[in-house]
Design a protein around this nucleic acid. Structure first.
Lengths: 337, 337
DNA sequence: CTGAAAGCGCTTACAG
DNA sequence: CTGAAAGCGCTTACAG
C-alpha cells in the first residue's frame, strides 16, 4: 500500500517490469511458475498499479462522468435522483468503471466544471441528466468535445446527440387509454413544465390517446404545472370549472396534490374524479391513496444508461444511439375499475 | 478539443513545451508578449492539458472519493444524502476538485471497489459516510492504505481515524433541556438504532440532560427504533403505558410517526404529549405539524467535510482531526411554550 | 525570461 | 515465455 512501482515488484520477484505488468493485467503469455512468484510478491507487498500512469498510456481512465445540471432543484425532493444514481452506480461497479459526479448547481459552476469535463484523459464518457430546455447549450458544448456523450432524458435537439429516455409518450398514452377504457369522457391532464421534454412528451401521449379514441380535445382540460404536490393541488382547483371526470397527472406528486384538492371539494376519488399518476414513487402516499400510476424503471434506466455509454466508448466510429425504455401501468384504486 | 499536446501548442506558438506549461499553469515568470501569443493559440485550438499526464507527474489527481457504504438503504428516502452530496459538490467545485462517488451497496461491491480506491494516483483523499457498526471493517481497511481518510459520522474506533460529525450529544441534550425547561417531568425518547453511533450519541445527550437536571432515569421511557415514520409510530405505542408527558424522537420521521400514534390515542400535541424531533427536514410534514426540532446543517456539513479532507491532503505529516458541528434548536409548536 | 532534459509509472510492440 | 526500449503527455529543477 506504500508507493511501490512495477519496477520494485519486478526486482523482488527477479523478473522484468514487462512480466509484472503482464501478470497484473492477467495476460496469458506468462509461465505459471513465474506468474505464481510475481503474484506472491504482489500479495505480500499489497502493490496496486498507479492509475494515472495506466490511464496515460492506455488512453482509458475507466471513469465516466454524471452531470446533474443547474435546473435540477428537485434533486433534493424527488426520489428519482437517488434511484438513478443507484442504477448508475450498480452498472459502474459491474463494469469496473468509476463514477465522477458533477452537480452543476448554477451556470457559474457549469463554467467551472466544463474545462475539467473536457480535459483529455480524464473521463472516458459522460452522461448528462437533462431534458430541460435550459440545459441545451451545455449539451451542445459537451457534444463538441468528442468525448462520448449520452443524454439521459430526451434533449431538445435530439438529432445531434445520443440519448436514453423513458418512453414518456407511449407511457402517457397507456395511462390515458386506461381512463378511456373505464369510460371516462372528460379527461383532464396536469402537465409538467412544458419547458422540459418530459413535460412535453407526457402531454403528447395524452393527446394521442384522445385522438385515437375519437375523444374531443379540450384546451380547458389541460393545465401546465411543475411536478410538485402543491402544483398539482393548484392545477386541480383550476380544472374544476371544466368538470373533468378523470385526471392524468404527469407525476405522482401532482396526482397526490390533485387528490387533496378533490377531497377538499367534497368530491370522491375515483367515483367523481378518477386519478392516474406517473412515476410509481416508493413513498407511503402512493400506497395510501392507492394511486394508479405508471411505473418508471428508474434503477434499470440508470443501469442501461451506463451500458449504452460504454457501447459508445467502445465503438470505433461515431454512432447515434437512441434508447427508449418501456414502462408499466400499475392499476390500483384511484381510478376505479 | 482534439488530441492536441503541449508540444503542438509550443510548435504553433514558436516556444518551448516548458513555456506553454508555465502559461497553462498561470506561472508568472513568462513575458507578457509570449504569454499572449501562447494564450491565443490555446484559445484558437481549444487545447486543454491531459489530466492523466498531469496527475502522474504532479502526484495529485484533484479527485476525492465519497463512499456510501452498504448499510445505507435509507439513501433513497432520507433527504440527508442529497443534501450531503450537495454540500460536498459545492465544496469540490469551489476548490477545483472532482468528486468520485462510490455507492457500495453490498459487501460484494465493497470488495470490488476497494482495489480501485486504494490504487495510487487516483484519489487524493477519501470521505466515507458512516457511523454504522457494520462499516467499521472497511473504514479500518481504508485507513491502512495511507490515503487521507475522513469519516463523516463518528466511527466506532474513533481514535484511529479522522472524522467529522454533527455534535449529536450536545444537540440532543439541548433538545431535552428545552423540554425540561417547559416543565415536563416524564420525558421519553425514541432512539435510532443503537448499532450506529448516531443512535447512540443522541441517546447519550438525552441521558446527560436528565442527569444534569436531576430527573430520574427511567428505562421504560426509552424505546429503540429505526429512524423511520412507522418505527416512530410503533415506538410511541409502546411508550404509552409509561405515561410520558414529552417525547424526544431522534429523527423527524420518527417524531412524525409518534405524533400519528398520539393523535390516534385521542391525545393532543403538545398539551398531553410534547414532541421534539431531530433533523429539521425540508419536508411539508415538518411544517404541517409545526415540529420543534434540531436543525442539522447538512449542506455545510458536507462542505466542511471536504475542507477538512483537503487540509489532511495538504498536511505534510499525518494528523488526527476531529470536527464537531453545532446545531440549532428550532422552536415551533409541537412542544408548547 | 526561456529551453533542453529528466522523470512520473505504466503498457506494448519488437526481438530473441 | 521473457526482457530492453520506446513512449503516453505532462512538470520542474537546472542552466543560461
Amino acid at each position: 500500500m506504500t508507493n511501490l512501482r512495477l519496477e520494485d515488484i519486478a526486482k523482488k520477484a527477479g523478473v522484468s517490469r514487462s512480466t509484472v505488468s503482464r501478470v497484473v493485467n492477467n495476460q496469458l503469455n506468462v509461465s505459471d511458475k513465474v506468474r505464481q512468484r510475481v503474484l506472491k510478491v504482489i500479495e505480500e507487498t499489497g502493490f496496486s498499479p498507479n492509475a494515472a500512469a495506466r490511464t496515460l498510456v492506455s488512453q482509458r481512465s475507466n471513469t465516466i462522468g454524471l452531470i446533474l445540471p443547474h435546473s435540477v432543484s428537485t434533486f433534493f425532493t424527488d426520489p428519482f435522483y437517488p434511484h438513478l444514481i443507484k442504477g448508475i452506480s450498480l452498472a459502474c461497479n459491474h463494469y469496473d468503471f468509476t463514477l465522477a459526479l458533477f452537480v452543476a448547481g448554477t451556470r457559474e459552476y457549469q463554467e467551472k466544471i466544463l474545462p475539467r469535463l473536457s480535459s483529455r484523459g480524464f473521463l472516458d464518457g459522460i452522461i448528462i441528466q437533462s431534458g430541460h430546455d435550459a440545459d441545451q447549450s451545455i449539451i451542445l458544448e459537451l457534444a463538441s468535445t468528442n468525448i462520448p456523450l449520452l443524454v439521459a432524458g430526451r434533449p431538445l435537439y435530439e438529432d445531434k446527440v445520443c440519448y436514453i429516455d423513458i418512453d414518456n409518450v407511449s407511457a402517457s398514452e397507456k395511462a390515458v387509454r386506461h381512463l378511456i377504457s373505464l369510460n371516462h369522457k372528460h379527461i383532464a391532464t396536469i402537465t409538467g413544465p412544458l419547458t422540459s421534454t418530459v413535460g412535453h412528451d407526457r402531454l403528447t401521449g395524452y393527446k394521442i390517446a384522445l385522438e385515437k379514441s375519437g375523444l374531443k380535445y379540450n384546451p380547458s382540460l389541460i393545465i401546465e404545472s411543475d411536478f410538485t404536490e402543491s402544483g398539482g393541488y393548484n392545477a386541480m382547483k383550476k380544472l374544476f370549472p371544466a368538470q373533468p371526470d378523470a385526471v392524468f397527472a404527469a407525476s405522482d406528486m401532482m396526482a397526490i396534490g390533485a387528490i387533496r384538492a378533490i377531497k377538499e371539494a367534497q368530491l370522491n376519488v375515483p367515483d367523481d374524479v378518477a386519478v392516474v399518476g406517473f412515476d410509481d414513487l416508493p413513498i407511503p402516499a402512493v400506497n395510501e391513496f392507492q394511486l394508479t400510476t405508471i411505473r418508471q424503471p428508474v434503477v434499470q434506466f440508470g443501469f442501461k444508461a451506463v451500458e449504452t455509454l460504454i457501447e459508445l466508448i467502445e465503438s470505433d466510429y461515431p454512432v447515434i444511439k437512441r434508447v427508449l425504455m418501456d414502462t408499466e401501468l400499475i392499476i390500483r384504486k384511484s381510478c376505479g375499475s
